[in-house]
Nucleic acid binder design. Structure first.
Lengths: 231, 231, 231, 231
DNA sequence: AATGAATGAGTCTTCATTCAT
DNA sequence: TATGAATGAAGACTCATTCAT
């Protein structure tokens, strides 16, 4: 794999691949180098340290994530509500397909929370704070949301979303729902004895609830019968 | 043999305290022992290893978490919708006050996702799988949700929640929203230049959206004007 | 060599031995541990890091060095001038026998110069500054000199050293001569083509000059004939 | 091929500058190259390796050092004793102004001692031994001393230095004093509690002692009263 | 139950040096 | 001459865990 054009990219791809199969902690820099077909030293030439590499990965994750938002926003002939509905599906899809990228985004969110709290900021590894990629992320991390908010605004304009809603608050609420939804899929998929809910039947229900929340109109539904529980 | 009743508890409390201030990774077993006023060796007598200790902590977190649900469910004179609304507030409160406990719960959710996926199960540290506390968690982790579902059922019964909704799906959707909400508070608190949304004005909006989703009735609200964005 | 009483001492002795044969830089902590018959980790249990170990060694060097001064000062029936003359011989002897100790003392002197100059203090490895042994050295490093000054005072009292001399200034001047003398022995021992001076004939001449400086009386000497040079 | 006459010199100057501010070990070859405005590779074209560069620096130090001796020796109308007294002042000045050069000279002295002792020669980095500059230094390092010896001879001729003294032995003794003096300035400048001697009052005392040693005549001085000490 | 000295595998990271271009 | 990407040996240090007492 040596002598490729973009060593930087090759390293990143190797990192993604290894983080996916072994996890971030279990992956050694040497593994990354080996997998990229280069020497350990060169890895450090392109990325200051492991944390920097991970921040670079996170940066790329955000870029791709933003693309998902953009693609949907650009798609012609869709109402704002449809866009937002698409978003749910696409993000869940993204999380599945690009597990490491998605995890890195969530990790960045946690980082951000610590970063914003003076009491916890010291818990962040200084190497992360020093990373140029982290600094860049601080600048660009709003971008996907910006697009998301535009979708809601669009929905209000085209009447698919009720006009009383405030785009920002609404988008962040949706965004929260999606993040939580994705996180809960794990437990839900667990085949516990008493579980009456499964990933397959949750998704349509979840989507409908979200849409109703946005539209303010209630669809006729068969009354609930399920009881058990999980979590 | 007399007065040191709860060494086990003392260790756990020390761990919570240290994980809170330094984080899990940065906390060494020696720190925990010292903080608990005992020797390193004894710590290993009570907890098989660091992961086991963390799983014990997670178990305790779930117990306390369940208590929050139970407290709300037991409170007299409240409608199902009010209970669910309370839940949002209480969980966010819980996350703030018991940061480490809350984080351990989210961590367990991630664990569960990996555990349920044959492709990722190998990524879980064997020590976690071996931990008795982890095994116990597999059994009891549904409990808070069980109560939550009962709240929704209650709401349907008392008419505060629209009858078309299915308790399980509804509860998990709410639960997702709350998890996501808590996670997004970090980024939202970040004082970016263009941000038009803040933690303070998001919470009432979020709560109202959730309630509307559950009730199916729309409150009159001032039309949205904000545009900017973040995240 | 394991299971000795004084692990701390065993490690230090191993360090001295290895620093002597391979030099400080070329000696790895693992070598020290192996030579001491213990594990690497235990070395770090007793000494915070390599610098700390070296500072502990330096501390011991100063202790032994001070003993040399004390032994001479305690010896009965000697005039102050004789003591000072003895000092020259003993220090040169000490430097030969305990090369690493002596070098560590000179190294500490360099450290001290950097430490006292705000512009160069930053050049000192933080680990050195943090070392308890270094801190201790800052307190005790005067002690040998204290004794040396007492020797000069004694010489003034007993008339072997001329009364015009100030003990402190005089001692430090002697001390400087000795340090320089020891340092120059290296070049002098070099068998260059043109050298007309050798270690053997320098010592008595050096000693006499020092004594004359202190006594103020001139011995009759054969006029100089040597010419060549070195350095 | 035209204007870059002295790349070699530029590199050397950069090295001096960096060694001064960061120290030899902390300075990377890359820093030197960057500071010299050339590539790393080219640095290795001019200097075989880092040690070779340092030996080149040492060679230059000796050249400049020799110039100091020569300047004094050439100065008209000065007695041998005055020249030697000047030497003290000039060398101390040189050490301050050209710290790195002076240190490199002392380092070479240490090297020479190891080089002359079969037991320690192996401790010297082979790269040093291979350096052409080191070989050259072995040839020329006597030169400053040659001039120094001539100064003493001159002093004997002009009567400023007593005739009993042997120029070589005398010069090396002076030289030793100076080296030691410079080395002790560090500790002396340290503001210990009990110190009664300072750099400012040591210098005149030291100089007088040296002169008296050379002249054999005693100046009237106030008897010493100071007692405290340091090291 | 309790101690804490002892272990050693595990990893990141640095940097002098080379060499294809 | 000149470049700078690429190499890889070298080594410090951590910390979960054990076990003799």
């Amino acid at each position: 794999m040596a002598r490729e054009k973009n060593k930087e990219k090759v390293i990143l791809d190797s990192a993604v691949s290894l983080f996916t199969s072994k996890g971030y902690l279990a992956t050694r820099m040497e593994d990354v180098a080996k997998s990229a077909g280069i020497s350990k030293g060169l890895t450090y030439f392109y990325y200051k340290n492991k944390e920097d590499l991970f921040m670079a990965l996170t940066k790329k994750a955000f870029d791709q994530f933003k693309d998902e938002f953009r693609d949907i926003y650009r798609s012609k002939g869709k109402s704002g509500l449809e866009m937002v509905s698409d978003l749910l599906v696409r993000i869940v899809q993204f999380a599945r397909t690009n597990q490491v990228y998605y995890d890195s985004i969530l990790n960045f969110l946690d980082l951000l929370k610590k970063y914003n709290n003076p009491k916890t900021r010291a818990q962040i590894d200084p190497k992360i704070l020093e990373s140029q990629h982290f600094q860049k992320l601080l600048e660009i991390h709003h971008e996907p949301a910006k697009i998301g908010i535009m979708m809601v605004s669009q929905g209000i304009k085209d009447g698919s979303i009720r006009p009383q809603l405030q785009p920002e608050i609404t988008f962040y609420t949706i965004w929260s729902m999606i993040i939580g939804y994705e996180k809960m899929l794990g437990p839900i998929e667990y085949e516990g004895k008493e579980m009456k809910i499964h990933a397959e039947n949750w998704e349509p229900g979840f989507l409908r609830l979200m849409q109703e929340m946005l539209k303010g109109t209630i669809q006729a539904t068969k009354p609930a019968t399920v009881q058990g529980s999980l979590f």
